[in-house]
Design a protein around this nucleic acid. Structure first.
Lengths: 340, 340
DNA sequence: CTGACAATTGTGAGCGCTAACAACATGCAT
DNA sequence: ATGCATGTTGTTAGCGCTCACAATTGTCAG
């Protein structure tokens, strides 16, 4: 960091002096105000460069009451989806000149959420991105009005907060449609927790797709997203053999099911087809490589910030955006064996 | 957020007025200065509670030149290791009353790192945690002196910056030792990139362990951490069959190898034993469940902040800390088949 | 009762910036 | 020349807090 000769970081006043103008003119230059003559602007810019001047964020914040910071409230931030969404959020926010402050929830409770929101208001963040995919989160958010734009990722939002989401029902349709096309009639669903927005929506999409095709939709199991829970269900399903195809809520649970089927001698896809959700980088290397539904989490994060910046900078109204998922066909699905 | 009757957020002055003291006394109370009488402190605390007063961070920052913010510079933040380290960092930092600002590197270059560091100095962060596990990072850090404590995660640090790391050589020893104990003599290593600190250290540990046991250490392949690169090597190794056991740099590459071996009819662990590194939540559900070396990333992150806070708050000298990894035995390792 | 000292509380200034307004050119129609 | 709009620059105040120091009170030995 460059320091002025007296050992202090240079400030507006120092730049002004060197450029032979008032500090206010320097302020105008760094804030891109219109009415500054070209000659003055160049003089000031030269002085800024010479001193290595950088604006003091705290001083600016103090008077503008804005911090150029976006708060990201997240849970399960180490998981593939949230982690990548965070990356998209960070990229879009930093590119737009904002700082990104994070608060990770250890548990999703009212108190924890309030605590994190207070943390952000203490920091006078200009907006809050919420990566907490539980249905109850929205209700809690409405209770605590932080006074700045809030965008909930993974939800379509409502009257109070904006939302950016992947079209989960479409994703479920894609998966189930693929299985129906292959000739399956008995298609089960291993869902994520029903208090997670995505979990509920995928289950709903699964049911709707089967209903539309006139097929039964009675095989529904609710897991917790973990490979372990997939494994447990896999053992049960291997014993019962009630379905010829499974739509699984995420790739991790699918991995557990694959493992359980392998142990039990159930062949995938010969005996049972399996479709996952997410398309993690590893999913193509499962045994067998997993057919799944890809979600572009980084794009989701970027869209979230797009919406937020429109609200912050242009005072736009609450709105929402939807990212479309995509089916990735690999080796875990095939037509059912014809029965004798 | 509670507002005072005139629509403004309450400030020190408002609290002082209500409590019948000076603003300075209120400041003393919120900063826990000693010389404040019990009666006064209680009066002030009551006023603070009544008004819902919260200190203005920007104003405080402006005068103290400290922001109560820790910057986290990371790359590959969506990967299991870095993502969990970030979680540990966030937890420890927020618990200590700090804000956590992140900057994710899209590419690891001098420019990108400088950019991110400038981003942090603009924000006057009080310390910087670096989660960029490339060997060159340290050199770049030394060039740019941010003027605040820096802790590099995944490195032992050096004279200029502190470090928090997992004992990678010990981890490699654990893995290789386990294989030797099982009776393997030809133990190959699929390493991570050699310009990653962890990759280089694990390879070194592998070599050292074999050397000490008087075993050959000529089968070394360098991957890129991805399942895809593991898969490629797996195909080659399946064809060549030069080793009876493989120590793999991380669980993802191990997954790729498992996949390739499965395709090629190489049985694990009957024909070849495989040990991974990391112990991701999924590793226990691979086919077969993976023997691996567990690293406690969250602990690593917490330790990193412990060190940093000591430097920030107590002016402690540059130091370092080491987290010990642990072997997790599962089904991907066994004694080699006795040859005829 | 006084002076010295410690404990407690108050006063004033200023951190670096932006907002609001004032002041000054400049150009052009009258 | 005069008046007025327009563009450009300067002046002043104040955001909410902490620091350094000043002022006040209480305590106790002599």
């Amino acid at each position: 960091m460059s320091k002025s000769s007296n050992g202090r970081l240079p400030r507006l006043e120092d730049v002004a002096e060197l450029a032979g103008v008032s500090h206010q003119t320097v302020s105008r230059v760094i804030n891109n105000h219109p009415n500054v003559s070209k000659a003055t602007r160049e003089k000031v810019e030269a002085a800024i460069a010479e001193l290595g001047y950088r604006r003091n964020t705290a001083a600016r914040s103090l008077v503008t009451r804005r911090s150029q910071t976006i708060g990201v409230l997240g849970s399960e931030l180490a998981q593939y989806g949230p982690a990548n969404t965070l990356l998209g959020v960070e990229q879009a926010a930093r590119d737009a000149g904002y700082f990104v402050s994070i608060a990770a929830l250890r548990s999703v409770s009212r108190d924890a959420i309030f605590d994190a929101l207070r943390h952000f208001t203490d920091q006078s963040v200009d907006g809050i991105a919420v990566l907490v995919p539980h249905t109850e989160t929205l209700r809690i958010l409405e209770e605590f009005n932080p006074g700045v734009p809030v965008v909930a990722v993974g939800s379509l939002g409502d009257e109070a907060v904006s939302g950016a989401m992947v079209d989960q029902k479409r994703g479920a349709e894609l998966a189930v449609g693929h299985l129906i096309e292959l000739g399956h009639r008995r298609i089960g669903h291993v869902a994520g927790p029903s208090d997670w927005i995505d979990g509920a929506l995928r289950a709903e999409g699964w049911r709707a797709a089967l209903e539309e095709a006139g097929l039964p939709h009675d095989l529904l199991l609710e897991g917790d997203w973990s490979a372990g829970s997939g494994y447990e269900f896999g053992r049960r399903l291997a014993a019962e053999r009630t379905a010829t195809a499974l739509f699984v809520g995420n790739d991790q649970m699918a991995l557990g099911i694959l493992r359980a089927f392998n142990e039990a001698g159930v062949r995938v896809p010969d005996d049972v087809s399996v479709v996952g959700f997410d398309d993690q980088p590893e999913s193509g290397y499962f045994t067998p490589p997993l057919t799944t539904v890809r979600q572009d989490f980084e794009e989701l994060g970027r869209r979230c910030i797009d919406i937020m910046l429109k609200e912050i900078e242009a005072g736009a109204a609450v709105s929402s955006t939807v990212v479309t998922p995509e089916l990735v066909r690999r080796a875990s699905t095939a037509s059912p064996a014809t029965e004798h």
